[in-house]
Design a protein around this nucleic acid. Sequence first.
DNA 1: ATTTTTGCAAATGCTTTGCAGAAAA
DNA 2: TTTTCTGCAAAGCATTTGCAAAAAT
Lengths: 148, 148
Amino acid sequence: MAKTKAKAEFSRYLQANGLRSSTQRDLILDAFLSMPPHLTAEELHRKVARTDGGIGLSTVYRALRLFCDAGLAKQRHFQEGRSCFEQAVGGDHHDHLICEGCGRIVEFECQEIEDLQEQVARRHGFHLTRHRLELFGRCPDCADNGDV
Amino acid sequence: MAKTKAKAEFSRYLQANGLRSSTQRDLILDAFLSMPPHLTAEELHRKVARTDGGIGLSTVYRALRLFCDAGLAKQRHFQEGRSCFEQAVGGDHHDHLICEGCGRIVEFECQEIEDLQEQVARRHGFHLTRHRLELFGRCPDCADNGDV
DNA sequence: ATTTTTGCAAATGCTTTGCAGAAAA
DNA sequence: TTTTCTGCAAAGCATTTGCAAAAAT
């Protein structure tokens, strides 16, 4: 189970950096791993608050930063002014397809696009360090109903 | 001169929407058009403040929104938590190559990439409405010096 | 016993908004 | 004269931070 591996990885990270585990961190990580792979700090906070109502939102933010540092999460910025945290299971690279109707997020990989990006960069003498590719549209379920 | 055309376009937009022109709007538009094609509200404010120190930042923000509504500008979000406004001369579509050293921004178009994006979307049953592609790296001038 | 964590409240940084006075039409 | 604009200060919003108390080693 990936959950167990992630937890082991996290405690290794803590130990390696002279940090401590805590009931809050354990709870937050557990909740993070048992929710859909893309969520907001506030969503995660709501979830953990159902178990321990005393947990502060700042603690969730601090935990999420640790998860990112430990390589367990990736911070994304699909919408302006709001972060979304993604479970980073393996170190796999991918881009995103986002439904503007229901918010569904699909991860994809396209090597041809990556190659073309490199080509474009080279043409301008740039040395690429990273990129951001996000496709927005409507998923099959939302395609028909113009509402939402 | 594109500047003249943009000004005409703006006053047409104002008229068509029951809005008024003002010395501030004129000044802000003029400054906007005579600066590099990508800038921050604050940068623009600093510029106009050199001519009329009394102009408020809110007025600049309000003007920029009008420019966007009028089709003269496009709001971009290259870095989190900060908008950058781009002169939208024609209605041309393009993506961006951004130097992490000096901030230089290069616009490019790549039809092959666009086609592949459509293909990816179709493969997942999505109907694309927009996308965001940003390539980050180091431009030729910044390639060597690891500083900056 | 020491050092890290936590929760709260306050601070942050960018952007927007309410309002009363100034300026267009 | 009527309606839109402006500048200021205050509000918003997601996120971060200072601090004293609480918890982990």
